[in-house]
Write a protein that binds this DNA or RNA. Structure first.
Lengths: 355, 355
DNA sequence: CTGAAAGCGCTTACAG
DNA sequence: CTGAAAGCGCTTACAG
């Protein structure tokens, strides 16, 4: 049994009210009483029980973070940023890695509410705005990478569109005309924003879009691998690829090599994110850097500001700038386009594949 | 203001005790009353407040997970496993990414206790057993990758020593004699265990150890990069490198390439972990696979079992097997050893470096 | 400056 | 089967 305020009160010979005041430094209290109480608390190893405290205060100093897949390197960085400011501002973080599983998400969300979290950071969610609203009803919410007309949520996100434009313009400036895009997962605003930026850049350069050059993909290595293989099999003669993110770019790199082509001599590849590994793999990956830790930090700051504000606070819509990082995976467009022999492309497992 | 049990009681025309029983399905209750209460709760959107519940129950159904750096791909996988079973068994996860910062760790640990978490999973901690004991006093603890004589903690971990032996034996079987080891961070039992396995394999093969071939490193790409560069500069003529983990192996790969050597033709490199990317980078990384998600799942299971057990439960000491994964970064020892010109090795930034 | 009392939102013996 | 009461561990007016 843990020591309670009653034990401390008895040991110090005062009432529990006095102990509470001494410990919290609230209200007038005699110096002597105060130190007597402090001593007693110390001696007994007393630790206040936040459950009781929170029950009164109607605040738990806890925020929930919901992510779809903590295994994707984007989210740990985001969480790092969130944790940093949460800790600094006296909050704890309750984590749910469930957003990609509707059942579990629902379950976790309910549990989180019952636990009386003060607010929620929703990252990379595939939930529709109204469902989010329904579930979080009343709780302050900050979404990351999820533009939404949600009347109750602030949004913090990187400037995906500008980043995609940057990446595409970089390829154009290297002389590429036939530039492919391996898109992100369906139904995410990030996916749409990056596609839009890609299109914008093409349009601005007067390069006509070709449907064949946009391939559905995803955020994992295997998504990029598959998408790139599909792209190569189409025989579009593209000389550059803008991948949905770094992981898919790395998958694309593997597919290109599989096809017997070289990066960047035959095909340039650029990603998005600038994960830590991007500078270590060969060829070093050109990419668009987003400051994910800062993104998380800002999300937490915005949320905690909401919590501190009396009444309904003004919602925030914040966009964070991104940078182009040029490394080795992008280079000048080749004079002559080498076309791989698609029918018998080798799979990574060593077998033969047919598109 | 959220609806409380009182509102529901009034709406259903019963006492709060009855509401409680109806909602929890405990005790005898008339069918009609029960459904009347359920309706009312439904209509009012009633959600019980777990703070009050936990105050009585002396259990919050919440476990804390403490990691040193969530950005290291090992930990997200671990957390994924933990989350899966925690969720399945009705527990929530409170996360603290503070173990590498003593101040914050201390602070978080205190906050976690006040929040009345039911137990703690301590992963990759650099804290001494007695300090852990002091802080967690009384709480069930499971440590991951941290053998400790801690009388109060169970341990779940991969078989690092066996894995290191596997990796080293693999290199030996390829004809390598001069095998280097880029060690992990100082003071971690994982580091010691992997070093021990490496030594065991050498000894078993009758290969004498050389101090020059063991280089202090770490778990990050830059650690592996630096360590490998240092190793190359020593001119030891080694033909194979067993790196502390995959990230450091990838750093080593970069350093080897920097020095103008080829992998595996000139030098073989093997890592530890089998992160998802290992099969996608070029050359594909040979490594030792540990099932980190399972590790996390087991840690959570063991902890929750402790929570459910009446009284002090028997501590568990569980070791999970690992596998050798051979890909492309390891190959036969070269006939002739190529030695790089150390004095002017090129840095990744393009400048000249001196060791 | 300090204590007795009420109350946060629940659960659970104890009566009836 | 149901309700009144006590109590979980605190904080905070309200008196004094």
């Amino acid at each position: 049994m843990r020591t309670t305020i009653h034990e401390v009160a008895r040991a110090a010979g005062v009432s529990i009210a006095t102990v509470s005041r001494a410990l919290n430094g609230t209200g007038r209290i005699a110096k002597a009483t105060r130190s007597r109480v402090l001593r007693a608390a110390q001696d007994l190893g007393y630790q206040p029980n936040d459950l009781a405290r929170s029950l009164l205060a109607k605040s738990t100093q806890t925020i929930a973070v919901i992510v779809p897949d903590i295994t994707n390197p984007f989210f740990p960085e985001l969480i790092k940023g969130i944790e940093q400011v949460a800790c600094a501002r006296g909050h704890l973080v309750l984590l749910s890695d469930s957003a990609d599983d509707q059942i579990r998400l629902w379950q976790d969300l309910a549990a989180l509410r019952r636990k009386q979290v003060d607010g929620i950071i929703f990252a990379g969610a595939r939930l529709s705005p109204d469902r989010i609203a329904a579930v979080t009803a009343g709780l302050p919410v900050v979404t990351v990478d999820r533009e939404t007309q949600l009347a109750t949520a602030s949004v913090v996100q990187s400037d995906h569109r500008a980043g995609a434009r940057l990446a595409t313009e970089h390829l154009i400036s290297l002389g590429h005309h036939r530039i492919a895009h391996l898109a992100g997962p369906d139904g995410l605003t990030v996916t749409a924003a990056r596609l839009a930026g890609y299109r914008q850049a093409l349009a601005a350069a007067g390069i006509p879009e070709e449907d064949d050059l946009v391939v559905p993909g995803g955020f994992l290595e295997e998504d990029g691998f598959r998408a790139a293989r599909e792209l190569l099999a189409r025989g579009t003669g593209c000389t550059a690829v803008f991948a949905a993110n770094d992981l898919s770019a790395i998958g694309a790199l593997a597919a290109v090599e599989e096809a017997g082509l070289r990066v960047p001599a035959d095909i340039s590849v650029i990603g998005f994110d600038d994960i830590h590994l991007a500078g270590y793999i060969r060829p070093r990956l050109s990419t668009v850097r987003q400051d994910v830790v800062r993104l998380g930090a800002r999300a937490a700051e915005v949320l905690i500001d909401h919590l501190l504000a009396e009444g309904p606070s003004r919602l925030v819509q914040e966009t964070i700038a991104v940078d182009l990082v040029v490394r080795e995976s992008t280079g000048p467009a080749p004079r002559m386009v080498r076309i791989p022999a698609p029918p018998t492309a080798v799979t990574p497992e060593g077998g033969a594949a047919r598109a």
